[in-house]
């Protein structure tokens, strides 16, 4: 009889079990609620906007328009230009940030007198709010108060000391420079952490085996860093492609949409045009492109993991 009673937990026991089972949700649910309510639900709604005519100031809007936005998009030369610009913007920013970050990390890796100070100083740009670094570079490129046009003219890159932000052919390089300045510390820190996780004995062993500086770099540093580098670069690229702050702050996409990237194009459509339907359609396309990209990243990661 008592055995029977013990097999079946009493009401009290069921309640404790239930409470135990619920405990993690008690801690996690506020976060989940915020994410669902402010990110997931709007995301779903945003996707639905892509198929509706939603213009803020037009009271008659709201109807279902099917794939009309996507058809428009296909014929929208501004969108295609923004897509091209996104590639330029992302590739140029990431590769310059990465290259400078790597040089910096390699310089900061070994102790030298003054390293602490140098480290604190070179990381400062990262503390500057992004929009402010954009504004600051806009000022630096302004020939009235900024020295950059004069210097560029002096070394022969510019034919006259003009503001490159007003020249549609090269304006995109303004935000790119600001982005590089702002983003190098991120790469430097990440790579520095990865470098410091390489056990020093490995270098010592290689040195005893007779490997020179270059061989040690090629045979130890690069293979060790490769996984970190791959993942960081690929993820950072997504982040940069998604971040229109600098462009909005520096050029607003102009002149003549020559600096518009897809992310800033979405913002402009929503903010200036108040055409939420079309903005959401563009956003949907961007999301799809990023998903494809993420899949490729995952595949590369998989093959990297297999290789090591």
């Amino acid at each position: 009889m008592s055995v029977q009673a013990e097999r079946r937990p009493g009401w009290h026991g069921t309640r404790r079990r239930f409470a135990l089972r619920m405990e993690p949700y008690f801690y996690a649910s506020p976060a989940l609620i915020f994410i669902v309510a402010v990110m997931l639900v709007p995301l779903a709604i945003g996707l639905s906007y892509a198929f509706r005519d939603i213009t803020l100031l037009n009271p008659f809007s709201g109807g279902f328009v099917g794939v009309q936005h996507f058809v428009d998009l296909w014929h929208d030369s501004d969108f295609w230009q923004a897509l091209g610009n996104t590639v330029t913007w992302t590739v140029a920013s990431v590769s310059l940030q990465f290259f400078l970050g790597l040089v910096l990390a390699l310089r900061l890796y070994r102790p030298f007198p003054g390293r602490g100070l140098v480290q604190a100083l070179v990381f400062v740009p990262w503390a500057v709010p992004m929009f402010l670094s954009g504004l600051n570079f806009a000022w630096l490129f302004n020939p009235v108060i900024g020295p950059l046009p004069h210097w560029l003219y002096a070394v022969g890159i510019l034919s006259s000391p003009e503001n490159i932000l007003s020249d549609p052919a090269i304006a995109i390089w303004g935000p790119i420079v600001a982005n590089v300045w702002w983003g190098v510390p991120f790469f430097a820190i990440t790579l520095l952490a990865a470098l410091q996780s390489i056990p020093p004995e490995i270098y010592e062993a290689a040195e005893i085996d007779g490997a020179g500086t270059w061989r040690r770099f090629a045979d130890i540093t690069v293979p060790f860093l490769a996984p970190t580098i791959a993942i960081t670069v690929l993820l950072r690229a997504v982040w940069i492609a998604n971040a229109p702050d600098l462009i909005v702050a520096m050029t607003g996409g102009g002149p003549a949409d020559s600096t518009q990237i897809v992310a800033s194009y979405i913002f402009t459509q929503a903010f200036k045009g108040l055409d939420f339907g079309y903005a959401s359609a563009v956003a949907t396309v961007l999301l799809m492109l990023l998903l494809v990209y993420a899949l490729i990243v995952l595949m590369i990661r998989q093959s990297l993991l297999k290789a090591s």
Binding site: I35, V38, L43, A263, S264, S280, L286
Partner: peptide, 26 residues
Amino acid sequence: KFWLVGLMLITQMFPLVMLISPIFRI
């Protein structure tokens, strides 16, 4: 838990500008 972590990772990847219009309307 797996889904929660996955969800959080994905939110780090997707373009937040997407949310501008719907959040404004909500």
